[in-house]
């Protein structure tokens, strides 16, 4: 069998000067050669997602094993065409392409960024900044240095969000994001709604609100919100006791099943929780701007 395959491959025409796509984009960071550590890749991806969210510029890092018969310049511009890095029409994208076996790298700049990320700045990054790291095979730091260099060359008023900042102390101070708890809150809301609705009392909501307010007050010191919690609990209970009952409860068996609908399918994907992650490139174009370097 192996011999057969080898024989078939032998007769395959060798296609010279053909660009072979490395595949689809998995994110802003695409390590087809598998040289980056997982943590470093995730860190870079988070940085580039954050960067795209703030500036609308799309920077993609692509690491491949080898170029084949193609020059790195042609490979970069073809890949740029194929993926469409940057916003459509504005072409605010940039590609940092690295080919491990060829010891070559290139920064390819979208039309819209040519004025900010000039050829001279790109040249400095690929011939002075990154090569020392790559020579000692420190891919993680080298790629990061290249990306940071690109971001600072483009300039503008980008400042990394705390989650992606390099300083680990800053990163650990994760802020409270309501969207992280969205489904949990919805669930609590509906669940408690169905319980309050079945209870005949109108004050239970107020008591629960008081407890919740005290918990929040103890946890964060935001005692000002205590009355709001109580009032909300009362109003909520009143509302569900009168309206919810009529609207949703046609029989007791349904009242318990209803909230369960929200649990079906498990936890929703990150896509929903955190809008603005990698959702494909915008369709930008480059025209051969940038610079190539080797190490």
């Amino acid at each position: 069998m192996k011999r057969l395959i080898a024989a078939i491959l032998l007769f395959f025409p060798l296609i010279a000067n053909a660009y072979v796509s490395p595949g689809n984009a998995q994110g802003f960071v695409n390590d087809f050669a598998g040289v980056l550590s997982d943590s470093s890749r995730e860190e870079l991806e988070a940085l580039l997602v954050d960067y795209q969210k703030q500036t609308n510029n799309e920077i993609s890092v692509v690491i491949i094993n080898f170029l084949g018969d193609e020059t790195i310049e042609t490979f970069a511009v073809r890949l740029f065409e194929e993926w469409g890095i940057g916003q459509k029409g504005k072409d605010t994208g940039a590609l940092f392409l690295i080919s491990i076996a060829d010891n070559k790298m290139r920064i390819e700049t979208g039309y819209g960024l040519e004025g900010d990320l000039t050829d001279i700045e790109s040249k400095r990054i690929v011939s002075d900044v990154v090569p020392p790291y790559f020579r000692s095979e420190d891919w993680d730091e080298g790629v990061r240095a290249g990306v940071v260099g690109m971001i600072s060359a483009i300039g503008g008023d980008y400042s990394p969000s705390p989650e992606v900042a390099r300083d680990p102390n800053a990163r650990n101070q994760s802020e409270f994001h309501i969207q992280d708890y969205f489904w949990f809150l919805i669930f609590i809301f509906i669940w408690s709604g169905s319980i309050f609705a079945r209870s005949r009392s109108w004050w239970a909501g107020g008591v629960v609100g008081l407890v919740a307010g005290v918990v929040v007050g103890l946890a964060s010191g935001a005692w000002l919100w205590l009355p709001a919690f109580i009032i909300f609990g009362l109003v909520f209970d009143y509302f569900v006791s009168t309206k919810y009952r009529k609207t949703f409860m046609r029989g007791d068996h349904m009242s318990m099943a209803w909230p369960l609908l929200f649990l079906m399918g498990g936890r929703p994907g990150r896509r929903w929780d955190k809008p603005g992650g990698f959702g494909g490139f915008g369709g930008g174009l480059s025209g051969g701007g940038g610079a190539s370097g080797k190490w």
Binding site: V77, K123, G288, G290
Partner: peptide
């Protein structure tokens, strides 16, 4: 710096 410019320009020409 000029050479970097020229490189970029020549590459742009071949792309266009």
């Amino acid at each position: 710096a000029l050479i970097a410019e020229l490189e970029g320009t020549e590459n742009r020409i071949s792309v266009e």
